[in-house]
Write a protein that binds this DNA or RNA. Structure first.
Lengths: 196, 196
DNA sequence: CGTTTGGCTGTCCACATTGACAGAAAATTT
DNA sequence: AAATTTTCTGTCAATGTGGACAGCCAAACG
């Protein structure tokens, strides 16, 4: 049968190194050499596992989207039954929640590259839709009597406030930026009245 | 006296072309040739006007920060006396307000490059602080009796919701994403009660 | 032990990009 | 018209980057 294949594992490792490089140097700044150094491999192996540059970028886009989808699923499960909007906000903004900080930075970088790699759009868009949907479901569960459209607005607002906070991380802003987003999300949730 | 200098104007044109390229290709993807093509000049002239790559990036960072500061000042003036929070939100989210869409994309790209160009951090950070401050002042003017800390939270929330909306523009999301952010900002503002 | 299968390395070429310089062309003043 | 200053062009070398290939090495199986 020959040597057993570790291709799947290697592919994950290379993808992870690519993710680190994109987060640090941007999509166009993540060269094969930097990725190879990060992965501890030789440059030709990167190509062997992920294909040419375009294939690499699309693979990363799908990987990021998949990661976000898993986080959405986790979020849905980790909140008690019935889930509370307050708990959603606290999980999103808790520092120990600590979703991999590279994920959101890569998401941003890839978003800005959609014009160059159009196939990125679909997975990135639907990953975000999924996250929105989880938030909407949680908010509606916590406020069954509230208007559906209003719940949607509040849920989107909470997620967007969270996203902004993450987007500013590379700037290392004062702590107040994050706490103001957190407090704003709380206030927004409270417009729905007490939870059931 | 010799030929008259058009250096200042050329510098602005080159900076503008650089901005377009960064918005399209990212910081590392904006090569001198692409910038030259965009500016309608020959490559060596780019270097002549903006210096080497690092100087170019820092110049763009300062230019973006300056642009944002001007927009902040404009925002402060364009709102009536007394300014209303509602008007602030409507101006921010109005499509015809149409601040140059490249500005926010460049801001994001540059933010993600702070690790490589540390001198970018200061101007980007204080431009955002300025924008926050304008929003805080407007909200406080509209709600003179409200608690100062709460006004700060609401103002930051409004700005952050606006920022997120702009950040998603490259993904060309469904129109509902923007309208939900807008409605969330309105709801958030309403938590302060009626305006004076 | 040999074969087979797959992972890994070394090396090559083509091309893009940056950085630098010398010199031509243009415009204004004297 | 001549001189001067600035703008612009052409070209070179050095380096970085992507893409491709041939061949070696390691591990499992018969």
């Amino acid at each position: 049968m020959g040597r057993p294949s570790v291709q799947d594992q290697r592919r994950q490792e290379v993808l992870d190194a690519f993710m680190t490089c994109v987060a640090t140097y941007g999509v166009e700044g993540a060269t094969l050499e930097k990725i190879a150094a990060e992965a501890g491999l030789k440059r030709p192996l990167i190509r062997h596992h992920l294909g040419n540059r375009e294939a690499m970028v699309l693979a990363l886009g799908n990987h990021i989207a998949e990661t976000l989808n898993q986080q959405s699923a986790l979020l849905r499960e980790s909140l008690g039954n019935p889930p509370s909007t307050r708990a959603l906000i606290e999980v999103l903004f808790s520092t120990d929640h600590a979703s991999d900080p590279r994920t959101n930075i890569c998401y941003q970088s890839l978003s800005n590259s959609v014009a160059l790699y159009p196939d990125l759009r679909q997975p990135l868009l639907s990953a975000m839709e999924t996250l929105y949907q989880v938030a909407v479901d949680i908010v509606r569960a916590g406020h069954p009597t509230a208007d559906a459209k209003i719940c949607e607005t509040v849920a989107h607002g909470i997620i967007n406030l969270y996203v902004t906070t993450d987007a500013f991380v590379p700037l290392n802003p004062p702590e107040s930026w994050a706490s103001n987003s957190f407090l704003a999300a709380i206030r927004l949730a409270e417009t729905l009245g007490a939870e059931s």
